[in-house]
C-alpha cells in the first residue's frame, strides 16, 4: 500500500517537474514548484524522514514560494523567449538521465540492511544516542552534536547567503522595467482594509509562532529543530507583514534586529564551541558544559538549536523585507 502511494507521488512529482519546465508563465511555475515541494515533503514523510519532511514543507513549499513571488513582483511574470534551440540542453539532460538511470542499478534496494549507509556509522549513532544524550530523536543528535561541525557550517552558509542577498538588493534601483506588471495594491498598507484575512490572520499568527517555538524546543523528542522552527516563525511574521503592511512589521522587528538575529545566532553557535574549548573539551564538545556529560550534551544542543533558529528566522525575514523595500523603491 505504501509502495503504491509512493509510486503515485513520484509520478505526480515527475509530472509537476515537466509542467514547471513547460510553462512560460513564471507565476504558474512558482506555484507548481510549491506543489512539487509539498509532494516531496510527503515522499520524505513516507520514507520516515519526518525532520526532512518538515523542513521541505516549511522552507520549500512555504518560504521559498514566498521569496520567488517577491522576486516576480520585481521582475514580471513572463519568461523571456530563449533564442537558442532546446537541442543542447535536451542532449545534456538525456545523457545525464542515462548515467543516473545506469547508476540506480548499482544502488542498494530501499531499506536493504546490507547497504553501506546502514553499515557505516548509523548503527553507532542509534546505539550511542540514548547513552550519550538520553533523548529519542537521533536526527537531532546527529545534526547538533555528532555532526555539529557540518551544522555550524550550514548556519554560516545561511549567514553568507543572507549577506549576499542583502548586498545585492540594497544596491541602488536600476531603471524600472516598464513591461513588468504591477499588482494594483499599495504594498506598504498590506491587506489592512480586508477584514476577513486580517481577522483570521490575527487568530492564526499566535498559534503559528507557538507551533514554531514547540518545534524549536521539542526538537530533541519529536521531529523538528532550529531550521524548521526558524522557517515557521518567519512564515508567521511574513503573514503579519502581508496583513498589516511592511511598516508595521518593521516596527515590531526592525531590520537591524533581524540582522542581529542572523549574526547573533551564528555567533551563539560558535561561542558554544569556544566555551567548550575553554572548559577543557574539544571544539563543539558539549559534554564538558556541565558536570554531568549527558546534561552537558543536552544543554549544548538546546543552545545551538536556539542559535540555528535565530539565524534562519532572521535571515529569511531580512531577505523578505529587503525584497519588499526594493519593490517600494522601484
Amino acid at each position: 500500500m505504501v509502495t503504491l502511494f509512493a509510486v503515485f507521488l513520484l509520478t505526480l512529482l515527475v509530472l509537476t517537474a515537466i509542467a514547471v519546465v513547460q510553462t512560460k508563465n513564471l507565476f504558474v511555475a512558482v506555484m507548481l514548484m510549491g506543489i512539487f515541494s509539498l509532494l516531496m515533503a510527503t515522499v520524505f514523510f513516507i520514507l520516515d524522514a519526518a525532520d526532512v519532511a518538515l523542513t521541505e514543507a516549511a522552507v520549500g513549499a512555504g518560504i521559498s514560494t514566498m521569496l520567488f513571488l517577491a522576486t516576480l513582483a520585481l521582475t514580471g511574470e513572463h519568461e523571456k523567449p530563449s533564442k537558442k534551440g532546446p537541442w543542447i540542453s535536451g542532449l545534456v539532460v538525456a545523457i545525464t538521465s542515462l548515467i543516473l538511470i545506469d547508476a540506480t542499478f548499482e544502488q542498494p534496494y530501499l531499506g536493504d540492511p546490507m547497504a553501506p549507509v546502514q553499515q557505516h556509522v548509523a548503527p553507532w549513532y542509534l546505539e550511542m544516542t540514548p547513552e550519550l544524550m538520553d533523548f529519542p530523536n537521533v536526527v537531532t543528535a546527529v545534526l547538533a552534536s555528532f555532526r555539529g561541525y557540518d551544522t555550524l557550517g550550514e548556519v554560516f552558509v545561511v549567514l553568507t547567503a543572507c549577506i549576499g542577498v542583502l548586498f545585492i538588493l540594497s544596491a541602488g534601483p536600476g531603471a524600472p522595467n516598464p513591461k513588468s506588471p504591477r499588482i494594483p495594491t499599495a504594498p506598504s498598507v498590506g491587506l489592512r482594509h480586508h477584514l476577513i484575512p486580517r481577522v483570521v490572520g490575527k487568530l492564526l499568527i499566535p498559534f503559528i509562532v507557538l507551533f514554531g517555538l514547540y518545534v524549536q524546543f521539542h526538537g530533541e523528542y519529536s521531529p523538528g529543530g532550529g531550521f524548521q522552527a526558524g522557517a515557521i516563525i518567519a512564515a508567521g511574521m511574513i503573514l503579519y507583514a502581508l496583513l498589516e503592511g511592511e511598516k508595521q512589521a518593521l516596527k515590531v522587528l526592525p531590520q537591524s534586529v533581524l540582522i542581529g538575529m542572523v549574526v547573533g545566532g551564528a555567533m551563539l553557535y560558535g561561542m558554544v564551541g569556544v566555551v567548550g574549548m575553554l572548559m577543557g573539551g574539544n571544539f563543539l564538545d558539549y559534554s564538558v558544559l556541565s558536570s554531568n556529560p549527558v546534561s552537558g550534551q543536552q544543554i549544548g544542543i538546546l543552545i545551538i538549536e536556539i542559535g540555528v533558529g535565530l539565524a534562519v528566522c532572521g535571515a529569511l525575514l531580512a531577505i523578505f523585507h529587503a525584497f519588499a523595500a526594493r519593490r517600494s523603491v522601484g
Binding site: I183, P184, H194, I196, P197, V200, L203, L204, F207
Partner: peptide, 21 residues
C-alpha cells in the same frame, strides 16, 4: 479547525484579488 479557518479565507482572498484586478 486550522483548515476550516484557512481554506475559506484563502478562497475569499483569491476571489477578492481577482475582483480587484
Amino acid at each position: 479547525v486550522f483548515l476550516l479557518l484557512t481554506g475559506p479565507t484563502a478562497a475569499y482572498a483569491l476571489a477578492n484579488a481577482a475582483d480587484m484586478s
